[in-house]
Lab assay of single mutants.
Amino acid sequence: KKYAKSKYDFVARNNSELSVLKDDILEILDDRKQWWKVRNASGDSGFVPNNILDIVRP
């Protein structure tokens, strides 16, 4: 599994996007496009722009 940390707050604008808060740790589900599909600690998933994410190295 790959993880990323959010650098900023992001508010979803539709139901395919995921609202995240700065410093959230997110599991990366799909990173093939500019919007990555991620899952948060609550189990919710959706798309966020990859420019707000930093890859977390294990």
Rank of each mutant, 00 (worst) to 15 (best):
K5H: 05
N40A: 12
L53Y: 01
N51S: 13
N40Q: 06
E27V: 07
S45A: 13
Q34G: 13
N51A: 10
S19W: 02
W36G: 02
N15M: 11
E17C: 06
E17P: 02
L53A: 05
Q34W: 10
N50A: 13
V48M: 03
R57E: 14
V11H: 11
R39T: 09
K37C: 10
V20F: 03
I28L: 12
D9H: 07
P49A: 04
V38Y: 01
S19V: 04
V48D: 00
D44L: 12
N15P: 14
S16W: 07
Q34Y: 10
L21Y: 14
A41M: 12
P49T: 01
G46P: 00
I52S: 04
I25R: 12
L21E: 12
N40K: 12
S42Q: 15
V56G: 10
R57M: 12
N40I: 04
R13S: 09
P49F: 02
D31E: 14
R57D: 14
V56K: 10
I25L: 13
K5D: 01
R13N: 10
Y8P: 01
D23Y: 08
G43W: 05
D24N: 05
Q34N: 05
E27F: 06
D31A: 11
R13T: 11
L18D: 01
R39L: 09
Y3S: 05
N50V: 10
D9I: 08
S16P: 07
R13K: 07
A41D: 11
I25K: 11
Y3K: 04
E27D: 06
K1D: 14
K33T: 11
N50I: 11
R32M: 13
S19R: 05
I25V: 13
D24Y: 00
V11R: 09
I28Q: 00
E27L: 08
D54M: 07
E27Y: 06
R32N: 15
E27P: 00
R32Y: 11
K1Q: 15
L21C: 14
S16C: 10
L18E: 00
S45M: 11
E27T: 06
A41K: 14
D31G: 11
V38H: 00
N40S: 11
K5Y: 06
S45V: 11
A12F: 01
I52Y: 09
K37L: 10
S45Q: 08
W35E: 15
K2C: 05
I28Y: 00
S45C: 13
L26C: 07
S6L: 02
N50Y: 09
Y3C: 07
P49N: 05
N15Q: 11
I52D: 02
L18W: 02
S45Y: 15
R39S: 05
V20Q: 00
W36Y: 07
D54I: 10
I25W: 12
L18R: 01
D30M: 06
W36P: 09
K2I: 15
W36Q: 06
I28V: 13
D44I: 08
D31R: 09
R32P: 03
R13I: 08
V20L: 08
L21G: 12
S16A: 11
V20H: 01
R13Q: 15
V11T: 09
A4V: 11
K5W: 04
V38N: 01
D54N: 05
P58G: 02
S45R: 13
K1N: 12
I52C: 14
P49Q: 04
W36D: 02
K22E: 07
V38D: 01
L21N: 06
L29H: 02
N51Y: 15
S19G: 09
V48H: 01
Y8D: 15
V56M: 13
V48C: 07
S19F: 03
P49H: 12
L29A: 04
F10H: 07
D31L: 06
N14T: 15
D30W: 05
K22R: 09
N50C: 12
K2Y: 15
E17T: 06
I28E: 02
L18S: 01
D31C: 13
R13L: 06
N51M: 09
D23C: 09
N14K: 10
V11C: 06
S6C: 03
Q34P: 14
R32K: 15
D30I: 04
N51I: 09
V20E: 01
K37F: 14
K1M: 09
K33G: 12
V11Q: 09
K33E: 15
F47P: 03
D44W: 07
K7E: 07
A4Q: 02
A41Y: 10
N51E: 09
G46K: 02
D30E: 12
K7M: 12
Y3P: 02
R32S: 14
D44H: 15
S16I: 13
A4H: 03
K37S: 10
A12L: 02
D23R: 04
D30C: 10
P49V: 02
V56E: 13
W35S: 13
D24A: 09
P58R: 06
N51R: 12
V56D: 15
L53W: 03
D24Q: 08
E17I: 02
N14H: 02
S19Q: 05
S45E: 11
L21Q: 15
A4P: 00
D24W: 02
K1W: 03
V38C: 13
R39D: 01
F10Y: 08
V48R: 00
D24T: 15
G43R: 05
N15Y: 15
L21T: 11
V56R: 10
I28D: 01
D24S: 09
P49S: 03
I55F: 08
L18N: 00
I28A: 01
R32L: 08
K2G: 05
L18Q: 02
K37H: 15
K37Q: 08
R57H: 06
I25D: 07
P49R: 04
A4G: 13
S16H: 15
K2D: 04
D23T: 09
L18K: 01
K5V: 06
Y8H: 15
K2Q: 08
R39F: 02
G46N: 02
Q34M: 12
F10C: 03
V20A: 04
L26I: 10
A4L: 13
K1S: 07
A41R: 13
I55K: 14
N40C: 06
F10D: 01
Y3L: 08
A41G: 12
D44Y: 09
I25F: 15
L21I: 10
L29W: 07
L26H: 03
A12P: 08
D9K: 09
E27S: 04
S42M: 04
I52A: 08
V56L: 12
P58T: 15
P49K: 04
S45T: 11
Q34T: 11
K22A: 07
P58C: 13
D54K: 13
W35D: 14
F10E: 00
L53N: 00
V11N: 11
N14P: 01
D23G: 13
P49C: 04
L26T: 02
S16F: 12
K5S: 06
V20C: 15
N40G: 07
R39P: 01
S16M: 15
K37D: 06
V38G: 02
I55S: 12
I52T: 04
F47L: 08
K37V: 09
K7N: 10
K37G: 06
S45L: 11
I25E: 11
S16R: 11
L26M: 09
L18Y: 01
K5C: 07
Y3M: 08
D30N: 08
R57L: 10
V38A: 09
I25T: 15
I25G: 03
N40E: 03
R39I: 06
D44T: 12
P49E: 04
V38K: 00
P49I: 02
D9W: 03
K2H: 05
N14E: 15
A41F: 11
V11I: 10
K5M: 07
N51F: 07
D23L: 04
D30H: 03
D9R: 05
I52F: 04
V38S: 01
Q34D: 14
E17A: 06
N51Q: 13
E17Y: 04
E17R: 03
F10V: 03
V56F: 10
Y3N: 05
N15H: 11
Y8G: 13
I25A: 07
D31Y: 07
S16K: 11
L26P: 01
F47S: 12
L26R: 00
K7G: 06
D44N: 15
W36A: 13
